[in-house]
Simulated scan of single mutants.
Amino acid sequence: MKVIGIEIDKKRAICMVLSKDEQNNYVNLTGTNKYVEIKDDQNNHDIQVFAEKIHDFFDSIQPDHIAIITRQTKGKFAAAAVSFKLEALIQCYSKTPMSFVSKQTLTAYYKKNELPIVYDNAYQENATRLAAYLLR
């Protein structure tokens, strides 16, 4: 089973692709596509390029499941509007089931469980936690 965990942070979708091998070890399949970024969310061409890039990435991986970390919609710590635009473009991918997981769920899970794989860059931590959570 291949899964993609996605954290949307500002103008980029940070992705982590994980699977398990025959020995039940976690395998990082992300490669060089660690995130997809949009330049200008007001530019129609840039919106289309982002959608094409992220959907091509999904097609190249052929995941069994994709999940996105939820963000606050209102209040003092509400996410930026552009992040919801990116989320909608990601959700337009119809070839794979998609779900949402809250940061609170991940925090509770990792209080009792260790992260079973090392990530390459600090900004990948939440996406890695999500992908590993999906494979538990």
Rank of each mutant, 00 (worst) to 15 (best):
A51E: 14
V27F: 00
T30F: 00
Y119Q: 03
K2E: 04
A88W: 05
E114P: 04
N33I: 12
K76D: 01
V17W: 04
Y123Q: 07
R71D: 08
Y110S: 04
I6C: 09
T73V: 04
I68W: 03
G31Y: 06
R136E: 11
Q72L: 15
S83F: 09
Y26Q: 02
P63D: 02
A13P: 08
N24W: 06
Y35E: 07
T96G: 07
S99Q: 14
Y119A: 04
V82T: 15
F58L: 04
P97M: 08
K10Y: 13
D120K: 15
I69M: 13
A79F: 14
R136K: 15
A127Q: 06
N24D: 13
R136Q: 13
E52D: 14
D41H: 12
A132V: 00
Y110V: 07
I117S: 01
A51I: 05
S99T: 08
M16H: 03
R129A: 11
T70Y: 07
T128G: 02
E7H: 12
T32D: 10
K39T: 13
L135F: 02
S83N: 11
K20F: 04
E125W: 10
S94K: 14
Y26L: 11
Q48K: 13
E37V: 11
Y93I: 09
Q48E: 10
A51P: 09
E7F: 09
T70C: 05
A51R: 14
V17A: 00
Q72K: 15
V118M: 09
S99W: 08
F84L: 08
L86H: 10
I90V: 09
D64F: 10
Q91S: 12
T128V: 05
C92P: 03
T70M: 03
C92N: 12
I38S: 02
L135Y: 01
Y93L: 03
E114K: 15
K95I: 03
N24H: 03
V27D: 06
K103F: 12
I69W: 01
K76T: 05
A81M: 12
D120I: 07
T30G: 01
F58Q: 09
F77I: 06
K2R: 08
T105V: 15
Q23Y: 10
L130T: 08
I6L: 03
H65C: 13
S60D: 12
